[in-house]
Structures are given as C-alpha cells and as structure tokens.
Design a protein around this nucleic acid. Structure first.
Lengths: 152, 152
DNA sequence: CCTTGACCTCAAGTCAGCTTGAGGTTGCAT
DNA sequence: ATGCAACCTCAAGCTGACTTGAGGTCAAGG
C-alpha cells in the first residue's frame, strides 16, 4: 500500500480544512464559491472538494480585503489567476504591486486629511464653506469598504 | 410689532436649509434625527425646525465620517456637545485631537501593512503561516466602516 | 447498528447608512 | 384663492459580506 489512490498525497480537501487553514467560516467559503471567487468539484456524495492551492486563493482574498478591497474588486484582480493554478511568484508580484499603490493612495489621503485637521485644530470654525477639512473638492472618503470592521 | 417672534433673526431653519448647507440629503438628516444625533422642534404644522447651530453639528458628523467613524462612535463623541449649543473652540479642539489620534492609528496600520507587503513582493509565498502580511497578531482592518463608499 | 460530526441546500436575517415610494399636509408667493 | 414646492410619515428596499436556521445527507468509529 505504498501508492494509495490520492490519500497520502492529498490534493483535494473538504471545505472544513480550508476553513481551518484560513480562519474563514465555512459559510464564508461557500459564499465565495457562489460569488465565483473559488471553484470546487463534488464528490459522489455531493460534497465539495477543493484544491489545496485554494488556500492560497483564499489567503489572497483575505489580504486584499485587509487592504480595503471589496469582493468585486478582488474578483477583478483574481481574474488573472486561473482557477486551480497556484499563483506564481510573478502573478503575485504583479498583484502586490497593484495593491501597494492602493495602499499608497490611502495613506496619502489620510495624511492630507491629517494635515488639514492640524490646521483646523487651532481654528475651530467647523465651517463647511471655509473648513479645509471638509470641502467638496476632494471628498474621497478616508474609509473604504470592508468586510467586517474590526477596529478595537 | 418691532419684535417679531424670531423671524428676522432667523434662528430656526427648516430641514431643507440644513440639507442645502451641508450637502446632505433631507432623508439623511431625518435619519440622523431618528438616531438622536440632532434634535428639532416642530412648527404648529408639524414641520421640523432646527437651530442654525445644527449645521455645525452636521458638519461635525460629516467630518467624523470622513475619518471613518461610524454613527455610533460619533454619537458617543457628540454626547459631550450639548444639543443646541454651538460647539466651542475648546469642544472642537478636544474632539479634533481625539480624531487626530484615530487617523494616526490608521496611517500607522497602513504603513506597517505596506512595509510587509514590500517584504512580500520578493517572496510570493502567500503562506498564511509565514506571510508577514497576514498574521492573526494585528488583524485590525486597514479599512474602516464608512457611510457610502466613494473611492474613485 | 447507531451515533456523531462534517457536510449539503435554500431561504431568510443582520448591520450600517441611507434612499425610495406612496400618500398626504403646509406654507409662501402671486 | 390657488398653485406648487417643500414638508410630513411610515414601510420597504438597497448594498456588501456574510451568518443563521431549518431540515436533510454522508462517512467513520465504537
């Protein structure tokens, strides 16, 4: 019994394993599948089986979410990572660079806001017309969409 | 009839004026009133009348939202601004400093994340166990809650 | 054989922060 | 006096990202 039918070299994993490895809830993974973010095949008993590499796909989703991307955006970004292929280093580099510039943008926005707030601290006007902090020009939300908001 | 009932020195304004001055939708202002963020009195005909100073309260809400605070948090912060009193410069300073540290935190978090991402770009591992980007330690969401998400 | 736990589907619920709609009233200018 | 914009209430809907619940199946160990 050295060459077991694919049990020792376990390529296909059930949903619970994915959940455990990623920290996601099972229901969340099913939801991602519905949304088309990951794919599965079914056993004869209709249970999902995922590729081990989907752990990486999920990791990617989690990371991207941390950066404030919504699932739709992630979906777009993921379109380039073929289902069932482990993302190569090159894939990952391309995407991380794109994420990096996302973060950069957010940091800049926040920094600008902070500077304005500093100007404002001495002022106290709170005038929508004059306040540097609140002008229509660059309303662009320091906040992004997010999964569940953990902040404390 | 020199002393008109408070018409010339228009202290009380209808909801539409608030909306126009703040850029908020009328429905949003009513919603805030329901939530207890601002208060109004009614005319004999059951229409809301707000204090002019509520423009400032609303401004404050808008600014705080931009910084990623949720209405509940804002409510808390506002508890110190008595209804119907124009926030003093001191009120505002205290609060803005508190907001400032909020922003600081967010910037730091993002910056840390960016650094980790940089480390990761050369790595490409995407391993949840090893990846600096994704560890349970400081899961704390680069994203915050937000009103409507405007990003582009 | 039986239980336990992991799995399945599908519908509905949750939270935040509003908006939309239906149906009705007020207030101000002409 | 009348017209009409601005106001009112209340209920329901929406987006995003899930969770929860009900009701059922599957696989393995004792």
């Amino acid at each position: 019994m050295l060459a077991k039918p694919a049990k020792g070299r376990n390529d296909l994993v059930p949903i619970g394993v994915l959940a455990q490895r990623t920290g996601l809830a099972v229901s969340a993974i099913r939801y991602y599948e519905d949304r088309g973010l990951i794919a599965s095949i079914r056993t004869s008993g209709n249970q999902r089986r995922f590729l081990r590499s989907d752990i990486r796909r999920l990791s990617f989703i989690l990371i991207a979410q941390r950066l404030g991307l919504g699932l739709a955006e992630i979906e777009r970004e993921m379109a380039s990572l073929p289902h069932g292929r482990t993302p190569t280093v090159l894939d990952w580099q391309r995407i991380s660079r794109s994420l990096r510039s996302e973060i950069d943008g957010r940091i800049q926005l926040l920094t600008r806001t902070r500077n304005k707030l500093d100007e404002c601290i001495g002022c106290g006007c709170l005038s929508l017309d004059r306040c540097a902090l609140y002008n229509k020009e660059d309303r662009a939300g320091a906040a992004g969409p997010g999964p569940r908001f953990v902040l404390d």
